[in-house]
Design a protein around this nucleic acid. Structure first.
Lengths: 256, 256
DNA sequence: CGAGTCATTGACTAGTGTCAATGAGTGTGG
DNA sequence: CCACACTCATTGACACTAGTCAATGACTCG
């Protein structure tokens, strides 16, 4: 029923050469296939200037990962923190009885390891090919202590992550399956927009199981809701993306 | 069926005169009925020393509230932030369609307004008589900028609040009604313990509706789970508290 | 004592979960 | 290049948890 012919080109995980002319003084900019780092505007490092940028860059190790690679495992010693520069990373936690909760999907500009805790609070696994700046956790912590501006910036990021987590709590606690799916799609759309603008095409590099575990549903229920919204003409659903046909209806479903 | 004769004395919201000899140099200590502030060990201000304590104290306005008083309303301009010194505060958010999500219950030592945002992210309402140190948000923000140690401390608190929010997400997303109730009781027990040690008696100054809205359930379901655990001999349930009879069983229910 | 609020209980229902079968897409080896 | 195995998504039938509606009970406050 649903078209499955598409691929992930809409994700635009590669860097855009048009940004070549951007400010060269920021982390990650020298290391990515000759292109400038276009995530700086919404990345944690955008608060730094002058020498501090060079110092942070000295600590940053540019890394590339294939899709479906673990970046960190819950409860393991936290060696590193990451600043994602391209791709998508799934953040999740496994309960002892095998149930799993997905907390979110990190996008370019997102920082993984905000708590700076000894042990990783959750798993982080790539869903697509990912590039990231990797930092030694101890070094990063020390550097942060010497840079109040960076500390302040990370504080703000953590506070807004907390606000986002509370939104998610309200979604899980108050909403029906259909509303949850609408919230998920519109939330992802908004977060993707900071890179490429609002689009009606939403790439879904994660599996239905990931979506289900994010929304506190089963894979079957997610599938049924997609099918329902597809039949109603609200969405065009494919395995690896959806296109929004009736944004208004979706927004009404997701209305706070 | 359930005994309803008890009152809230177990909450021990009053201050303990045994702490009279504690370090006098900290916020809130002069203002509370002649007793020392016994929340300092786990409060945000415990990082400060010397003159900085006096400066913060100069900004702090000691306040008292009756039970069921609003401290702040969601979306309203955020004038103040609070450091709770006694009592319990409900943090909640109302959705447009009338559904409500309770995010948590602030206890002595907890800070309300971590995000320091222009507008309050949620409602805060007292459940018991409450005392708190109130700060002007702008003044507090400026003071924090001048005190990297305090900034660092608030960062850590925010990060651990984020971790707690993610625990709550996992509870809402993965668990059954019975498990949710067990998690709620044991979580509250643990948080109360930092003041008075672990106790089998858990005061419940919030309504069943508050518990239901915290756990993403209905009031009837919460009531049924209480009744069930009561019948099984796991709990002694009263309107305003429960006593844990079979901790082991409860912990198995709540096991991560 | 009576009104009002909140919690409990019961009967019934709806929404999701569970289980099982089928379909579609992907990768591998002959 | 095709056949096969494998994974993942969809669909249907059915079960069950938790929600809804309504009545009753317990406590609180004038």
């Amino acid at each position: 029923m649903m078209s499955l012919d598409s691929n992930l080109e809409g994700l635009e995980f590669d860097f855009d050469p048009r940004l070549e002319a951007a400010d060269p003084r920021h982390v990650c900019c020298h290391v990515l296939d000759g292109y400038k780092c276009d995530i700086r505007p919404y990345s944690m490092c955008n608060i730094l200037e002058g020498q501090a940028v060079d110092e942070l860059e000295f600590l940053a190790r540019p890394t590339n990962y294939a899709a479906r690679t673990p970046l960190q495992s819950q409860d393991a010693l936290a060696h590193s923190v990451f600043n994602v520069t391209a791709g998508m990373v799934r953040l999740s936690k496994l309960l002892t009885d095998g149930r799993r909760q997905v907390f979110g999907f990190a996008l370019p500009g997102d920082f993984i390891g905000l708590t700076l805790a000894e042990h990783n609070p959750y798993n982080a696994d790539t869903l697509t090919p990912v590039t990231a700046c990797q930092f030694d956790r101890g070094q990063f912590k020390r550097f942060m202590s010497l840079q109040p501006a960076l500390l302040r910036r990370l504080y703000d990021i953590t506070a807004s992550e907390l606000a986002r987590a509370q939104e998610h709590i309200a979604i899980l606690g108050c909403r029906s399956a259909e509303e949850k799916v609408a919230c998920f799609l519109l939330g992802l759309r908004t977060r993707l927009a900071r890179r490429s603008g609002l689009s009606s095409r939403i790439p879904l590099p994660m599996s239905r199981q990931d979506i289900a575990d994010f929304l506190g549903l089963t894979i079957e229920t997610v599938s049924r809701m997609f099918t329902k919204l597809n039949r109603q003409g609200v969405l065009d659903v494919a395995r690896d993306h959806v296109c929004i046909r009736d944004l208004n209806y979706l927004q009404k479903l997701a209305a706070v």
